[in-house]
Write a protein that binds this DNA or RNA. Structure first.
Lengths: 147, 147
DNA sequence: TGTTTTCCTACAAGTTAAATAGGTTATTGT
DNA sequence: ACAATAACCTATTTAACTTGTAGGAAAACA
């Protein structure tokens, strides 16, 4: 049967991660036109533009306009965790709203028997995404290229 | 701004869990009218009816019609894991579609550098939800009742 | 000046979440 | 018998969100 819990990562987050990995695989400081990334990753250019806007505004990538322009990472691949990228593009990674912030704590919090389940879940999720960097992803994918 | 939660458990799954915990806190074999659960948990009765239908059809709860009727657990609280309940009510979606089953493996699978991230995430989530039972939840919430 | 590329804003089809609504059938107490 | 109760069944709704498309403006370079 092999059923799975519905923990959906949207295309926005997934594409953002693939985009960042793509940039990380280039020479440091080299400008990469989004058009190229779109072609390589088979993602719509216009959609990628929207996604990278967020990454640019957060200072994760640097941009250069005009011909020979493009994007490049602001830091080395070791710097970026999956969590940083997903939180930025997906929003909070909390499994339930009441874990998201002070403003979302519900009235039932004290009586809520299930709260500790969500807390455990959140810790497990954070533990994964905060301990994988772009460098890890690249290293791992390199292992898969069997000659 | 109210940004979207990406790794999110829907109300359906959350309510199902609260419903099951509520039933588990009753005397074994005692019929509990859904109306009571709805009042206690402050959830719409009509919405709960839809949710418990799934649990009933799966054989997780037993139902009795008519006055003095209601619902009761088919097994003891130790039997039910959070994973069982969430998978049933949330559906069978993986963090990403390509992990869902044979039929969804995408063309890019071999080149997909990010796949192992989603695999790790899935394992971490499964590890949490498959190792907490209704009995654990009840035991834990009992600890919180400070006199 | 023309080309390239980032940047900005709007819109839209499709899907899903989260209920609401209104009834039917079975069982039990009176 | 009959009213009350509670499960059961099916349809509809509303709003939000996803997943893009679309069209152009501004900047840089050759």
């Amino acid at each position: 049967m092999n059923m799975v819990i519905s923990v959906k990562i949207s295309t926005k987050g997934r594409y953002a991660l693939r985009l960042m990995v793509d940039l990380a695989q280039r020479k440091p400081g080299e400008n990469v036109a989004l058009k190229e990334v779109a072609a390589r990753q088979e993602i719509s250019l216009k959609y990628l533009e929207q996604i990278i806007t967020v990454l640019t505004k957060a200072g994760y990538v640097l941009s250069t306009r005009g011909s020979n322009g493009g994007y490049r990472l602001a830091h080395s691949p070791e710097y970026y965790t999956v969590g940083m990228i997903l939180r930025l593009t997906e929003g909070s990674l909390a499994p339930v709203a009441c874990l998201e912030g002070e403003e979302n704590t519900c009235d039932r919090r004290e009586q809520c028997a299930t709260l500790f389940v969500w807390e455990k879940l959140q810790k497990a999720i954070d533990d994964v995404v905060d301990n994988i960097t772009l460098a890890d992803i690249i290293a791992n994918s390199a292992d898969n290229y069997v000659i």
